[in-house]
Design a protein around this nucleic acid. Structure first.
Length: 647
RNA sequence: GCCGAUGUAGCUCAGGGGUAGAGCGCAUCCUUGGUAAGGAUGAGGUCACGGGUUCAAUUCCCGUCAUUGGCUCCA
C-alpha cells in the first residue's frame, strides 16, 4: 500500500506505507539526505527515520531550519550526557534541552566539582562518540518499565519527571551506551555533529525553584561543520567588543567603585553629557505631549509604601528603612516614584476638566537587587527612571495609552531602534495571590491594553505572568550585544493605586469619581537605555548625542592658535569641539580620533589659516574637502536636524 | 542569595615558592609634520584585602571583598 507525501513546494510523491522522511530525502537526492536532521510531518517535528503511516505534508528539516538546529542541539545534549556518564559514572541527570543558541544539561555530580578545565576532555570524548555515528534509537516504553530503569540507575530526577507523565506516552532514546527519558525528536545519528564547544558552567536549581537542590548546568553549542563553530566564536568575539561595560570604560562614560557600593553607577562628564541630551530630547517631546514636570524627594515615609502596597510586596528585599535620630520614624529610599506622584495629585481637589493630568519626573530610585544579578548599567541598584504618571478618566485610558505608544515609537525611531519586541504582560492565571486589586479592575486594565495595542497596529507577543503586581503592562524589549533580553520602555495601566491612595476627582455630575493611572517610561531607565544604546551603535552615537562632535587637528603646533580660534567660533554655533594640541604628526592625530570615534575631524594648517577655512574629515568616511567654518557649521546643523527628523 | 570562574602598572594581559614583565597609554626631550601609529628617555605596582603553611608567599591553602558566566528574583 502506498501513501502520498506532499512536499512544501506542493509537489506530491507516492511512497510505500511506513517509509520514513529519510527515504523521501534519499529519493530526492543523496546530498539532501545527508543534511536532513529531522522532519516536520503534518506540522509535528519528528525523527527523520520514523515511519510515516499515512498521507502527510512533509518538510525535511536541515541546519537551515530553526527546528533542525534545535533538534541537533538537543541531540548534542544527549551526546554530552553520554560522555559525562563515562567520566562520572554516578552522575544523575536533570533536564537537557536545546536553547536559543545551543543546549545545556543539568546534572547532579554528587561530590564531584566540574570546572571549565574539564571541558576539553569532555569535548574530545564527545567528538569521538560523534564520529562513531551512533544512531539515536527511539523506543516506546511502559511507565513501569521506565520507572524500573531509573530506579535501578538511581536517578531520582528522572523518576520525578516520570511521575508526571502518562503511561503509553513515554519514550526512551538510546545512542551508544546512553539511554535517556526523552520525548524527542533527535537527529538520525551522532555523526551529524562535527564541531562543538562547551561554553560555560552554572548552578541551576532543579525545576527552577531555589528551594530545590542546585544542579550543575553545563552549556554547550554544536555545529554540522567546523567552519560554523569558528564563525560563531568569531561572532561572539565581535559582540563582546560592543559590550557597553567595555565601551563605557573606554569612552569614559561611567564608572563603578567598590567604595561607593556595588551596583551604584557614577556618570562621568562625557556620560553625563550624553544622558543630559537624551533627557532634554525626551523632555521636549513630553512638553509637546502635555506633560508637566514635577520633582520629588529621594526618600519617603515608610507609611507611603505601606499604602501603595510596595512595602508588603518588596519591603523585606529592599534597602532597609532609614531611622531618624529622635522620633521613631522610618523612611525608605524610594523604590518607585508613583506614590509621590499620587500625593501630588491629592494635593488639591481635581475636576474632570483637569484630566488627564500628566506628571513627569526623571526620578532616581533605589532597589536592592540581588548581588548576583547586577550587570553593568543594565541592572543596578540606583537608577533614574524617565517616569511619568497619567491620571485620567476611565474613558480616556485607551486614548492616553495610544498616545504613550506613539511617544515611545517616536523615540525609538529617532534613535533607530528597530529590532525591539513589544510584549503585553498579563497576570499569571494560576497565581492570583501575586497581585493586588480586584478581578474586575484587572480585566478592565487588560482589555484597555489589548485594545490600544490592536488599534495602534503593533506586532506583539503576550506573556502571561509578567505583569507588575498592580497591573498589566506593555513592554518594549530589546536585546543587548550578547543576546540577552532587556525591558526598556514600559506602559502600565493601574486601577489599584488610585484606590489605595483614595484619589478622586469631581465629575460633570458633581459626584466623586476615581481616576485611572497610567505609569509609563519610554526609556525605562536612563542607565539601561544608555547601555543598550551603546551596544546598539557600538559606541558610535548619532552626532546630536555624541559627547564630543568635532576634534580640531592642527598640522603642527604652529597652528594651535588658529585651531583654538576655530573651536571658539564653532561654540557660537553650539557645536562641541576640542583641539588636539599634542605634539604629534597629523596622521597620528587622525588615527587616534578615528579610534575614539570622533564624528568629525578638522585638519588645520597653513592653507586653512590663510583662507580662514577648515579641512573636514568624517569618521569612518574620510576626507570631505575644505570649506569655511560657516559652511562646516551648516553641515553639522543639517546632519543633526536630519537625525532628529526636523527642518 | 546560590553554583562556577577571575582579580598582577591607567588599559589589555604574560609570568611564577627567593630583585616584578610586555604592548598600549602617560611624562620629558628631539622632531614641526597634510588625512589611520615619527624617535629617544623616563615615571608608574604592598601582584584585590585578611589570615595560614614555609627559612622565604605575589605564587600553595582558607576566608573576605569586587568583577564575571549562569540560576532564582525584578516595583
Amino acid at each position: 500500500m502506498n501513501i502520498e507525501i506532499t512536499l512544501p513546494d506542493g509537489s506530491k510523491r507516492s511512497f510505500p506505507k511506513g517509509s520514513s522522511a529519510m527515504d523521501v530525502a534519499m529519493d530526492i537526492s543523496e546530498g539532501l539526505a545527508r543534511n536532513v536532521l529531522a522532519a516536520k510531518v503534518n506540522g509535528e517535528v519528528r525523527d527523520a527515520n520514523r515511519p510515516i503511516e499515512k498521507d502527510a505534508d512533509l518538510s525535511l528539516l536541515t541546519w537551515n531550519d530553526d527546528e533542525g538546529k534545535s533538534t541537533m542541539w538537543h541531540s548534542s545534549a544527549h551526546l554530552m550526557a553520554e560522555a559525562l556518564q563515562e567520566f562520572y559514572p554516578h552522575v544523575k541527570f536533570g533536564i537537557g534541552p536545546s536553547i536559543e543558541t545551543g543546549f545545556y544539561y543539568d546534572v547532579d555530580l554528587g561530590e564531584d566539582v566540574l570546572t571549565d578545565k574539564d571541558f576539553q576532555k569532555i569535548e574530545n570524548r564527545m567528538l569521538e562518540l560523534a564520529r562513531e555515528k551512533n544512531e539515536y534509537i527511539r523506543k516506546e516504553v511502559s511507565k513501569d518499565e521506565a520507572i524500573a530503569h531509573f530506579k535501578e540507575k538511581g536517578d531520582e530526577y528522572k523518576l520525578e519527571l516520570l511521575d508526571e507523565l502518562k503511561d503509553g506516552n513515554i519514550t526512551f532514546y538510546t545512542q551508544g551506551n546512553f539511554t535517556d527519558l526523552c520525548r524527542g525528536p533527535h537527529i538520525p545519528d551522532t555523526g551529524k555533529i562535527k564541531a562543538l564547544k562547551l561554553m560555560s558552567l552554572a548552578g541551576a536549581y532543579w525545576r527552577g525553584d531555589e528551594n530545590n537542590k542546585q544542579l550543575t548546568r553545563i552549556y554547550g553549542v554544536s555545529f554540522p561543520k567546523a567552519k560554523d563553530l569558528k564563525e560563531y566564536l568569531h561572532l561572539l568575539e565581535e559582540a563582546q567588543k560592543r559590550d557597553h561595560r567595555k565601551l563605557g570604560k573606554e569612552m569614559g562614560l561611567f564608572t563603578f567603585s567598590p567604595s561607593v557600593g556595588m551596583g551604584l553607577p557614577m556618570w562621568l562628564p562625557k556620560g553625563a553629557m550624553l544622558r543630559e541630551r537624551l533627557e532634554n530630547f525626551l523632555k521636549e517631546a513630553q512638553k509637546e505631549a502635555g506633560y508637566l514636570s514635577v520633582i520629588t524627594p529621594h526618600i519617603g515615609a515608610k507609611q507611603l509604601y505601606v499604602t501603595s502596597g510596595h512595602y508588603a510586596k518588596y519591603g523585606k528585599d529592599s534597602f532597609q528603612p532609614i531611622h531618624t535620630p529622635h522620633e521613631d520614624e522610618e523612611y525608605l529610599l524610594k523604590p518607585m516614584n508613583c506614590p509621590h506622584h499620587c500625593e501630588i495629585f491629592k494635593s488639591e481637589p481635581r475636576s474632570y476638566k483637569d484630566l488627564p493630568i500628566r506628571y513627569a519626573e526623571f526620578g532616581t530610585v533605589y532597589r536592592y537587587e540581588q548581588s548576583g544579578e547586577l550587570h553593568g548599567l543594565t541592572r543596578v541598584r540606583g537608577f533614574t527612571q524617565d517616569d511619568a504618571h497619567i491620571f485620567c478618566q476611565p474613558d480616556q485610558v485607551k486614548e492616553e495609552f495610544k498616545k504613550v505608544i506613539n511617544l515611545v515609537l517616536y523615540i525609538f525611531q529617532t534613535l533607530s531602534f528597530d529590532d525591539f519586541v513589544t510584549q503585553v504582560s498579563l497576570r499569571d492565571p494560576n497565581n492570583n495571590e501575586k497581585y493586588i486589586g480586584s478581578e474586575e479592575n484587572w480585566e478592565k486594565a487588560e482589555k484597555a491594553i489589548m485594545e490600544s495595542v490592536e488599534e495602534a497596529g503593533l506586532d506583539y507577543v503576550v506573556e502571561e505572568g509578567e505583569a507588575a503586581f498592580y497591573g498589566p503592562k506593555l513592554d518594549f524589549m530589546v536585546r543587548d550585544a550578547i543576546g540577552r533580553k532587556w525591558q526598556l520602555g514600559t506602559i502600565q495601566v493601574d486601577y489599584s493605586l488610585p484606590e489605595r491612595f483614595e484619589l478622586e476627582y469631581t465629575g460633570a455630575d458633581n459626584a466623586k469619581h476615581r481616576p485611572v493611572m497610567i505609569h509609563r517610561a519610554p526609556f525605562g531607565s536612563m542607565e539601561r537605555f544608555v547601555a543598550v544604546l551603546i551596544e546598539h551603535c557600538a559606541g558610535k552615537f548619532p552626532l546630536w548625542l555624541n559627547p564630543e562632535q568635532v576634534k580640531i587637528l592642527p598640522v603642527s603646533e604652529r597652528y594651535n592658535n588658529y585651531a583654538k580660534e576655530v573651536s571658539k567660533k564653532l561654540k557660537i554655533y553650539d557645536i562641541r569641539a576640542l583641539v588636539d594640541e599634542r605634539n604629534e604628526k597629523v596622521g597620528r592625530k587622525i588615527r587616534d580620533a578615528e579610534v575614539e570615534k570622533m564624528p568629525y575631524m578638522l585638519i588645520v594648517g597653513e592653507e586653512e589659516e590663510k583662507n580662514n577655512t577648515v579641512s573636514a574629515r568624517k569618521q569612518g568616511e574620510g576626507d570631505q574637502g575644505s570649506m569655511t567654518i560657516e559652511a562646516f557649521a551648516e553641515l553639522i546643523k543639517n546632519e543633526i536636524n536630519s537625525e532628529l527628523k526636523r527642518n
